[in-house]
Design a protein around this nucleic acid. Structure first.
Lengths: 187, 187
DNA sequence: AGTAAGAAATGACAATGGTCATTTTTATTT
DNA sequence: AAATAAAAATGACCATTGTCATTTCTTACT
């Protein structure tokens, strides 16, 4: 229901469309620390997180670097290979137990073809994802690590209690030690 | 014609839609080094570059930092305020004389409402922009400056002849001096 | 509650990349 | 073609951040 409700906030849906989405959507549950997409996989699913927290990361010579966090009522998938159906560079893992609604690419394409409203939903979701990524890029290009840390906190106020610092540090583009220093009261 | 042709490659258009787009599109020409969007402006236009080269940048305590380059057959607008119609943080300037096709947000919204095909075009363009930005973010997060430099060159092979190094360096997230050292044969 | 394991903080040192100044190269104008 | 201006390269020095090692703090488990 929450997926429908979220979509409905973007574009009001007729009953017919709503039923079609409901019919095609699947539901998955994962325990904590489960890798749901592996680097090299061709990911065929768009994930909508009903509850829990998920992290996308990249392995750069042995170290993992966080690409993004996604929580309740947010979408996620592999940004570099979902629509094109090519192997991704990223991993996606749960950081907390998750309940996730899933739409396959085939279902999506069917919905896009059939319903103009869903075409619009797709446009708006793509736009929102683009804005997310653009904000992240902006913060990496133009802000200091400390500013980025504060931005992250205001976007996800609970993140400190949910995620170890190292994952946050790599998201910010710094090491855990530097983040630790930024956080310390002496500056 | 080039705008229509580019759109038509994304989604084949009926004559009716084609005429509608043609009717609403405007054409602008700018000389070199013209600022077409200022930071603080509310930008009401989507630009399609027919010929020339354009740069988006951000002023960070007095220094300008390149956010992106866009050339022939590419779209550009302010990524942070076009759809929401809020003041942008960015500047857009021509680096070469440009001929640009323009669609206003009102025209776009009209086209989105009226034609399902254009809704799809919007979805696909948003996706393409998202992919661009995601690639850029990826390169900043996960690649070395040298790798980023090489990626940029393979994407825009002619860029070195068209843009001063300083603008490229800031795009890569380094200073002009460091870029100069990266380029030198000794490493 | 006590212990062990994991996470975070801190210190010392090194390396990378930035800043500023200067020189060399390339492009532009008359 | 010479003169001037702009861009790029180079060198010396410094600051910021990373690395590695160690200590302190927090959390989970029996």
């Amino acid at each position: 229901m929450s997926l429908i409700r979220t979509i409905n906030e973007l574009v009001p849906l007729s009953d017919e469309v709503r039923k079609d989405v409901e019919r095609l959507k699947e539901r998955e549950a994962y325990p904590k620390n489960t890798t749901i997409v592996h680097s090299g996989d061709v990911c065929r699913k768009l994930y909508f997180i009903e509850s829990g927290l998920v992290r996308t990361y990249y392995l750069r010579d042995g170290r993992d670097v966080t690409h993004s966090f996604r929580g309740e009522r947010e979408f996620t998938t592999v940004i570099d290979g979902f629509y094109q159906q090519k192997p991704t560079k990223y991993f996606i893992e749960t950081i907390e137990p998750c309940v996730i609604s899933v739409l396959s690419l085939e279902s999506l394409n069917y919905l896009f073809d059939k319903h103009k409203e869903i075409e619009r939903v797709g446009r708006l979701i793509n736009f929102n994802v683009m804005s997310e990524v653009a904000d992240h890029l902006y913060s990496l290009q133009f802000q200091t690590a400390k500013d980025r840390y504060n931005s992250l906190l205001s976007r996800y106020p609970t993140i400190l209690k949910r995620v170890p610092l190292g994952m946050i540090a790599s998201y910010l583009g710094i090491t855990q030690e530097t983040l630790s220093r930024i956080r310390s009261p002496h500056s």
